[in-house]
Design a protein around this nucleic acid. Structure first.
Length: 92
DNA sequence: AATGTGACAGAGG
DNA sequence: ACCTCTGCCACAT
């Protein structure tokens, strides 16, 4: 799922859970946390439904997540995505 | 089997 | 915006 997110867009734990036809938002996050494939999976494009960044386990932490997003054109302010409606990816 | 804890969400105060 | 519950699922004790 995460790999399908286009560059410069983001999605939320809720949306992913929704696509999996479950309400296990937390389990989704847990999956990320345990999954150490961060070099080849854009986990940083997964944020919270309220637009906030959420957490990020890999080295660098939330800082890193912000940078990666910013680098892809996603503006973050105070731990929250700015033009969320514009960059969010809902798996049409 | 029973608790408790999260990269969460939503409602209520 | 804040904090406190409750619901959710997987996993560790």
């Amino acid at each position: 799922m995460v790999c399908r997110i286009p560059k410069g867009r983001v999605t939320t734990y809720k949306i992913i859970a929704g696509q999996l036809n479950t309400r296990a938002y937390r389990a989704v996050g847990r999956a990320m946390a345990s999954n150490e494939n961060y070099p080849h999976i854009p986990c940083h494009r997964v944020i919270r439904n309220d637009g906030k960044i959420g957490n990020y386990t890999p080295p660098g932490g939330i800082k890193r997540k912000r940078e990666l997003l910013k680098k892809e054109g996603v503006m973050v302010k105070n731990g929250a995505v700015e033009n969320l409606k514009e960059v969010i990816y809902r798996y049409d």
